[in-house]
Write a protein that binds this DNA or RNA. Sequence first.
RNA 1: GAGCCCGUAGCUCAGCGGUAGAGCAUUCGCCUUUUAAGCGAGGGGCCCUGGGUUCGAAUCCCAGCGGGCUCACCA
Length: 518
Amino acid sequence: MTEINFKKIKAWPFQEALKLKNRISKMNNKKNVTFETGYGPSGDPHIGTFAEVLRTNMVRNCLKQISNFSTNLITFSDDLDALRKVPDDYPFPEKLEKYINCPLSMIPDFTGKYNSYADRNNNILKDFLNNFGFEYNFISSTGFYKKGKFDKQLLIILKNYDKIMNVILPTLRKERRESYSPFLPICKQSKKVLQVPIKIIDKQNGIIAYKKNNHYEETLVTGGNCKLQWKVDWAMRWSALDVDYEMNGKDLIPSYELSSKISNFIENKVPVNMSYELFLDNKGEKISKSKGNGLSIEEWLEYGSYNSLSLFMYNNPGRAKRLYFDCIPKNMDDYRKLFNNIQNQDDIKKLDNPLWHIHQKKIPSHTYPIDFTNLLNLVTALNTTNASTIKDFVRIYLKESISIAAEKELDNVILLSIQYYKKFILPNINKRKPNKDESKAIKKLVSEIKNLQDHINAEDYQNIIYRIGKEIFPDDLRRWFISLYQILFGSDSGPRLGSFFYVYGKKNVLSLLERSIS
RNA sequence: GAGCCCGUAGCUCAGCGGUAGAGCAUUCGCCUUUUAAGCGAGGGGCCCUGGGUUCGAAUCCCAGCGGGCUCACCA
């Protein structure tokens, strides 16, 4: 095996993996490395959450490449967290309204398919992750709290209650300081997560009390009776789950710093961290579920491939990027370019190719045989949503035959291009009406085509078009073609008409022409 | 107030030590049929400014000037 100097690899996941390896190497007896991504299932999974898992997995993949540590990736769902607001796009808002401040995992799923509201959102995320072929350990916060898997850390936090409060309180406003507590008791009657001041009753046995109506109610901090306020919760998880690496959006940089300080009073475990920039919508504003701006995972996948989405997520995580529909064609084409590049790259150069990271070093052997933008032009030019017509034209264009595997990719990308065309191109197309002369010529075209026998070839069509063009625009044949494109397709250029008519079929051609002059 | 990101062609951006790049836009040329699903050729740049490091800086470091976002309530 040749020695590779990984410091020279520029790809960011390798640089992150090196940072992590250096840290881990200093620890004694460390054999397994844990990556964590956390998310709150308060609504449909956000594309940012998804990006975080994707990117974390890329770092994990690189660490495997440069070291012998075993690794695992935790996807942690903070589903004991309370519902604060009903998502705008939720189908049953009035039903959900009643459960404000209740843990997400204790709210029923009103769609009737899952065990709970959180379970639904968790499963949608898991489906996405599975489709991308990730290995991960999904952890439900609720499950861990209830099984007592956080009890040890909860007791340590209670023991160091004052020290932790001293770290947190200065970061809060006066009003919030009055009510703040790292422990949020879960009311046994209302099931609500309470944000109330607490009194410590028994540090040893983990008992606290909070004011309820006119008396003090006692509760255990352990066993899922209390949840931690999230910054403390985060720090607690690092210890309890032994987290070595975790990313976060730049909005959480101050929280990461605070949680790092808090962890000094738990078990002193702070993961290697990377912060990434947030995604922006087409106006340059942060995308969020509540605003519904930007793009969701589903929306991307409706018009673009999984791989194009992965590529977008791979590129420049440290930069604020506009995430909008127009990113899709560019990333579809970039993917194909990089795919072609990687075929001839040596083993070291491959490590810098985004595809190595996207595919977790298992590069596929084929991809779609035509650029997406090219295909979009074609679909636009043909002005059709018929997949087999489009495919026939792609065949003519490619000339050489394609493998069955590539053909499958082609079928898929044709469907995506049709979706894209319907949504973004078709609404803007303006076919114009023919003028008197043009109308006459098209009528003549119709009657000549009608008189031909059924199996006409492309050349025959082309000859008729030329002949009629010469009669009506003897000095400017070019204008004849442009006119036809404008009238039939709503654009100034298009496919060679003879070939198009041939592929499109006599019946379809006649109806297209007749419609244009009606 | 603090933190993060960005300033490169008209626009959107890539490049991140070794000749300044792509797509779109623009200009010109090319259909009596051999890919107009366009094709070919061009124009367009103090790589924000000023210092530093270097044989060499758009690229690395420092300072400044612009622009944007985020956090300081919740997560």
